[in-house]
Nucleic acid binder design. Structure first.
Lengths: 347, 347
DNA sequence: TTGAAAGCGCTAACAT
DNA sequence: ATGTTAGCGCTTTCAA
């Protein structure tokens, strides 16, 4: 025989126990100033005694505030996004916010569904890193139409008037290239990434400007179009080494590409960093464990998550409208990490 | 002058538009069989027209079902947990569940707070990987007292009567050790992990049994107590190499330890895998990119997440009570990945 | 097949 | 400082 279903304790139960009213109990539990300390103490004691747990659902429905945000990422399996989520959730917890996660798996449809769930759940804001080839942004625009704050991070779309948090790809690339010059390398090549994605164009631009600052002009033959893979690093390195006047260093758009470069150089017995310098971008963990260790540019992933939450919190709480001409775009420093693969200085 | 606040469309608005009642609209939107197809069509059209979005909060309050689960992990920054979360969220999405994430950052207090939030949010179940040194489980027991289903994954606590999802550490370790024997290594050592954590004891046990299956007895001097660090791998390797009768292979409890072993062997010019075999555990990504590539045991992280969700879903929906003597413990296979560091066979 | 009415548990406006 | 009352938007009896 099933036992009677034990229902959750409510503020009404507490009120009955104390011969007072639900309103007073609610105020006491929310620590409103108008309630006497004595009553608060009584209420809290009764709540503990009855094993009371606040019903956030009811509270949200009545107050119109959910203290919840939605986060949509391509996949938590990629370390980059895991780190960002770590930053977001950490700060959200401090502010008493719950975080609902959805993944797009790079699918436009799932991304749309995720935003839909957020609307239904009445989240107070959305943090999103859009799927690779999302070109239709109607789901985000629809959310914005409902006054739901949105912040993009990393995979940033401009021209939508939506605030963003990203890193200084241009500056990072500039400093990476500059660093190679300072280490005494003279002809510095670049293996680039997909041209249609902004962050890779920015890195190319940073490289180009750094080269121009040292040389009269940019040598276009020192730019190899890659696709972010290890393989494209190997291909690029091969290509460059077979030139009549080969470069003596490569700035790779991304760590995996840089890894390919190093692998290829090893196979050809070109010593790194003595004869050839290499630097990547991303600060993937493996860079610390390969031989030689890989110089790279850190993207401050955790901080990106923290900033993303802080920004949306700001928009939610202060009701600021970072739209139109007032859109706030946070740009985090790209931090150089110099390791063996580019360190030519003799002790 | 602030514009009138545009409130969300409700089923009442739809009902008014169609000259029907909220009840009918609700039934139509939820596709209940008693409503005529014609009415459903009308309602859906009106909903679209008015830009209606279901209010999950109100629905949850009334129905008592939230279609939400809570997940608590130490940190999303660690790739392992990111992968598990990926698996959880993916399946949850398929079932129409929202997932709230909290992190403990290995702090017992934050873990407790997380569970508290879950209770307030009235999640229908909790998936948890407990903080390293959580010994007080009262917060979980409290949740269970309220009939809230819980499933532990990876960091499994036994004797609490809570269902678990983990991998076969014993079997994985056994096969890793066995593999080294089959590759022709004769004296196989082990660098272990913290003894008070079950999964590491299980790996030690798997190693021990595999050795016993090949030798008359276990040589205790071939077991070195490590702490999961790269450094302990180096220390262990040094220790073993300086024995008068050194081993010719090491099964390391974890990939970072194995990495330390390989680093130390390189420094001492011991060739891997020719003179010395190494295998780790975890399938960390760097293992694929170091030289030599690292043999290891994969933990099926994504699948672990999927199974964890499926299990809790089962408990929620079917109201099964996997408690007391009926606790279900899912054990996933540990999958060997043989790479260069243990591959001695000549072509 | 649809309507009427009640109420989930809380908070907020208004009253005292 | 506390009580009264109403209602957030939905689902779910019960009735027709």
């Amino acid at each position: 025989m099933p036992s009677k279903i034990k229902k959750d304790t409510t503020i009404k139960d507490i009120a009955n126990l104390l011969k007072t009213t639900p309103a007073t109990v609610s105020r006491a539990l929310n620590d409103l100033p108008e309630i006497s300390d004595q009553m608060k103490k009584q209420v809290r004691a009764a709540a503990r005694k009855l094993d009371y747990e606040k019903n956030k659902i009811a509270s949200s429905l009545r107050s119109g505030r959910t203290k919840t945000i939605g986060v949509i990422i391509p996949t938590a399996e990629q370390n980059f996004f895991g780190s960002v989520v770590h930053g977001i959730v950490d700060v959200a917890e401090m502010y008493g916010y719950d975080v609902i996660i959805h993944q797009s798996n790079e699918s436009h449809l799932l991304e749309k569904k995720g935003v839909q769930s957020f609307l239904a759940a009445r989240v107070e804001g959305i943090l999103a890193s859009v799927a690779k080839d999302t070109v239709d942004f109607s789901h985000f625009l629809q959310a914005r139409k409902k006054k739901l704050p949105i912040v993009f991070f990393d995979r940033v779309m401009e021209d939508l008037g939506i605030p963003t948090v990203g890193i200084d790809d241009y500056g990072g690339a500039y400093r990476a290239t500059e660093h190679l010059f300072q280490q005494g390398y003279r002809r510095i090549a670049h293996i680039s990434g997909p041209k249609d994605i902004k962050i890779f164009r920015e890195r190319l631009r940073g490289y180009s400007d750094a080269v121009k600052a040292h040389k009269k002009k940019l040598d276009e033959t020192l730019i190899f179009q890659g696709d972010l893979s290890i393989e494209s690093g190997k291909l690029g390195a091969s290509h460059f080494l077979e030139m009549k006047d080969p470069p003596d260093a490569i700035f790779a758009v991304e760590d995996f590409t840089a890894l390919g470069v190093i692998k290829e150089l090893k196979e050809r017995n070109v010593s790194v960093p003595d004869k050839f310098g290499v630097i990547g971008f991303c600060n993937e963990m493996f860079g610390l464990h390969i031989t030689p260790t890989l110089s790279t540019i850190d993207q401050q992933t955790v901080e990106m998550g923290r900033e993303a939450f802080r920004l949306i919190y700001d928009i939610i709480v202060k009701g600021k409208k970072y739209r139109g001409n007032h859109v706030k775009n946070i740009v985090l420093d790209a931090i150089p990490i110099y390791r063996q693969s580019s360190n030519r200085q003799k002790p």
